[in-house]
Design a protein around this nucleic acid. Sequence first.
DNA 1: ACACAAAACATCCAAAACGTTCATTTTTAA
DNA 2: TTAAAAATGAACGTTTTGGATGTTTTGTGT
Lengths: 293, 293
Amino acid sequence: MPKLLSPKQVARAIQASESSVKRWCDRGDLEVQYTAGGHRKIPVSSVIAFLRKTGQALENPELLGLPAVAGRAHVDYETACDALFTALVNGKEAVARQILTELYLAEHSLAVIFDRVVTPVMIQVGQKWQCGDVHVFQERRGCEILLQIMQELRRLLPTPPSDAPVAIGGTVSGDLYRLPTAMVEMILREQHWAAASLGDNLPFQTLERAIEQYRPRVFWLSCSHLNDEDEFLRQYNDLYDTFGMSVAFVVGGRALKESLRSQMRYATFCDTMQHLEAFVQTLNNTASKPAEQ
Amino acid sequence: MPKLLSPKQVARAIQASESSVKRWCDRGDLEVQYTAGGHRKIPVSSVIAFLRKTGQALENPELLGLPAVAGRAHVDYETACDALFTALVNGKEAVARQILTELYLAEHSLAVIFDRVVTPVMIQVGQKWQCGDVHVFQERRGCEILLQIMQELRRLLPTPPSDAPVAIGGTVSGDLYRLPTAMVEMILREQHWAAASLGDNLPFQTLERAIEQYRPRVFWLSCSHLNDEDEFLRQYNDLYDTFGMSVAFVVGGRALKESLRSQMRYATFCDTMQHLEAFVQTLNNTASKPAEQ
DNA sequence: ACACAAAACATCCAAAACGTTCATTTTTAA
DNA sequence: TTAAAAATGAACGTTTTGGATGTTTTGTGT
């Protein structure tokens, strides 16, 4: 998708007028390219450089375009992962914030950041925790920091329009991993959904009530840990029997192994946040009232 | 609605002259960004922080997109509690944010807001939940919303100076109530402490490691629920034996009944956030290097 | 290939913001 | 109570901004 932006797009994104953006281009404050016919084309990287130079905040990042997934050599995920890991286990909130903010400004797709940086880092934390290299409190503090930063980023996402389709979800009883469900919420909000995470550790009974009350178009379940797989299967399938026809069930998480999935029904299973993003975009495009781009 | 304001807009909102607003920006009292041409752009959050810092009233809140009552002389806690309760159980994030922002502007201490509004509301939610008037998902969603808003307010607090005294804390294994520990963190940060919440559900073993690594001046433990009181007592007292001399233990929470407290040692027990605030202020005043008021 | 609508272009101008200066009010200290 | 100090708000000429204008480029659909 577009790496080059028009003056109007940039103006909206940084809350300035089109005239000013064009003037800044002409004056050289904003690096700019031209089409054959003389139209300005402003690279995203140029906007970021400009914002950094002037110390301005990015007011409407969603307007800077959607997934720039295809290999951007610019960002080195491995370095970012290493740095983030170190920052999290040492409780360096400010460092972690800087890493993620820069990635967000450079990458513009939350899904990619989640899949290629945040999730791998948390997996690494989990592994080192099992071999005893990382203490529980370091893992917990790391999660706290990540959740805080994600909430800050969440504020930069568009506020859902009042007629936005509703999505709710969370994790089931016994699953205390709230990071994934927070990610899901953000991905959905980025796609202009009115997504609300109900949190973690939710009994199936209350999920049923929640669906009844919210009447969502999408219901998600993040499963990082299951206390009792058989019990989960039974209750999940009950829930699906009740609502599966009217609500799109989206499930994911490492606890849902293939053997389990084969016994479940759902609208989609997501291995990654990018899968989820693609699925939601499909919904947006095929819906009667699609959320505008 | 715009998140960045011009000096004139801010001047009208807080009923001051444009000259003064500009002077405050230049002096650093108001956080400000600049356009490429050198015009000031003031974030709403910066205005809110300024108003609180100086104790001024907000004369025209509607100009900032805030509720019309914000900053008015006195606040009726009971009304606020009722409104917040309704907003939380109905998942109305925006309404809850307005209520709390309004209180934040009108009040001088976060502790008062926590003690007289947030805590009572969550107690009410808990009660109605037990009689079945409130569903689990409503309670959970309410907590999510509160944590979200508190995170936003946290950003308005002063960033701790690098030589700030360190405080860490959280809840023990089996205690999943993370709201109180988030409150504690904010109260401490408001008093210029480098406070870091380690989160919830922490085994004692890792608390020990955390204290070793962070070497805090204060260690807090929030106890809203205990799986096993005797086990807790044993492990807590072990921890106190190890660190009680070098670290100030601050405990609180409704799970610590009188019968339990009598068997525990601690620097202070806090019934309310205002107690905590007073205690920390005492520490600040008697410390060799007091954080400036 | 052509036509047409949407978007971007350059230019111009009024409104607004800039920095500076100065008179007036408020606070602090003697 | 008075004098000095500090903060405020108005006034000023200059610069920046943002909207309106009519024209040109772009991209899409036939």
